[in-house]
C-alpha cells in the first residue's frame, strides 16, 4: 500500500501539475482556487504518507490519515458516479494507468478496509516498523 501510494504521488509530481489539475477539475466538486491547491498538495501528501507507511514511522497517525484520505476518495468518486460525470480516467494514477470510476471505487473501498484493519491491529502492524525500533530504543 505504501509503495503504491508513493509511486502514485511521485508520478504526479514529476509530471506538470496541470495534468493532475485537469483530473481534479473533472470531478466538478471544488472552486478554482481549491482545485489548484489540491493539484499541488495532494501528490506530496501521497508521497509522504506512502514513504512513512513503508518505513513504519508514526504508523498510528499515518494510518489515520490514510483512512481519511481513502474515505475522501470513496466519497469523491461516488458523487461523480451518482452525478453521471463523464470521467473516463479517474486521474488517481497520474496519466500512466487509466481506471474507470467503478473500478477505482472498488479499489478505494478495499484499500480503506485494509487501512482500517491495520489501524485496528496496530500492535501487529508495528512488528517490522521503525516505530517499534524507536519504542525499544
Amino acid at each position: 500500500m505504501g509503495f503504491a501510494l508513493t509511486l502514485v504521488g511521485f508520478q504526479k509530481l514529476i509530471e506538470p501539475y496541470q495534468n493532475f489539475l485537469y483530473a481534479v477539475q473533472s470531478y466538478e466538486l471544488f472552486g478554482p482556487s481549491l482545485e489548484q491547491v489540491i493539484a499541488r498538495v495532494m501528490p506530496w501528501c501521497e508521497v509522504f504518507l506512502g514513504v512513512f507507511l513503508v518505513l513504519g514511522l508514526w504508523l498510528n497517525w499515518i494510518l489515520r490519515a490514510y483512512v481519511v484520505l481513502f474515505a475522501t476518495f470513496v466519497i469523491v468518486v461516488s458523487q461523480a458516479m451518482l452525478r453521471g460525470l463523464p470521467i473516463e480516467n479517474c486521474g488517481c494514477f497520474g496519466e500512466s494507468l487509466s481506471f474507470s470510476l467503478p473500478t477505482m471505487l472498488i479499489a478505494d473501498c478495499l484499500l480503506l478496509v485494509v487501512a482500517v484493519i491495520l489501524l485496528y491491529r496496530i500492535h501487529q502492524t508495528r512488528v517490522y516498523s521503525l516505530d517499534k525500533y524507536f519504542l525499544e530504543k
Binding site: E15, Q18, N19, L21, G94
Partner: peptide
C-alpha cells in the same frame, strides 16, 4: 503533455477547457 486538449498560453501550460 499526456492528454488532450492541452494548450500553451504565452508559454504557460494549461490542460482542459476550464483551465
Amino acid at each position: 503533455i499526456k492528454r488532450t486538449p492541452t494548450y500553451f498560453v504565452n508559454g504557460k501550460m494549461v490542460v482542459g477547457l476550464k483551465s
